[in-house]
Simulated assay, not measured.
Amino acid sequence: MLYSYIVEKNIRQTFDDMNNHRWAEAVKAAAPNIHHRVAGAHALAGERRGKEALRLWLERAGRVLPNLRIKVNNIWITGWPWHTTAFAEWDATATLLNGGPYINRGLHVFTLRWGRLYALEEFQDSQEAARGLSAQAASGLQEAAAKPIES
């Protein structure tokens, strides 16, 4: 289906934008009232509503894990253009400031309507995220220990 191909291409492009710190491009397809949620108790956890809050979160992610690389392994798409759900399975890696590795796996769940992103929920190893951010904070990157951006 052509629509599924376009959605998959756009999702892969968004992950590429994130890997290359192109925040404005990464939020381009987000609806003004997007709902974004990440489980856990760390600086990248929490729940946000709104395109601007999502952009701020992405910018923080880029600052606290500056060399983070997310490799998309699989994308599944279901539904019709007026209500689409897409799943993206990924592996994330980074080198922490202390020289140690950060390795996480996860799944993004996208809810789209006519190609516009209305909800994004991230499922990942929240303990690994907290461990990596704690190591960053211990190395002097204080924002890695900040309260989550929530709105």
Rank of each mutant, 00 (worst) to 15 (best):
N33L: 11
L107M: 15
R131C: 00
A41G: 13
K51D: 09
W82C: 13
I6L: 14
A29K: 04
E52F: 06
I149K: 07
W76S: 12
S126A: 11
N74I: 07
P66H: 04
H42M: 06
F15W: 09
I149R: 04
H21L: 13
E89G: 04
F123K: 00
W57F: 15
V64I: 10
T85S: 11
E143P: 09
W90S: 08
H21S: 12
Y5L: 10
G106P: 07
P101R: 07
A24P: 06
R131G: 01
L97M: 15
S126V: 00
F123I: 03
L56G: 07
Y118C: 13
N104T: 01
L44N: 04
I77M: 03
A31W: 06
M18E: 00
Y118M: 15
I70W: 01
E47G: 07
L65H: 02
R116W: 02
R55F: 10
H36W: 07
L97H: 11
Q13C: 01
L120A: 03
F110V: 05
V38K: 08
E25N: 03
A129M: 14
Q136S: 08
W80T: 13
A39I: 03
G79L: 14
W90H: 14
A119T: 08
R48N: 07
T95Q: 01
W82H: 12
M18Y: 00
A53I: 04
T93I: 12
K71R: 09
R63F: 12
P66V: 04
A41E: 07
T111I: 11
T111M: 02
F87S: 09
K147E: 06
S4R: 10
G46W: 07
K28S: 13
M1K: 10
T78C: 09
L96P: 07
V64N: 03
N20D: 07
R12G: 09
A39L: 12
E8Y: 05
T93M: 06
A24Y: 01
G132S: 13
D16E: 02
G100Q: 11
L58Q: 00
R49G: 14
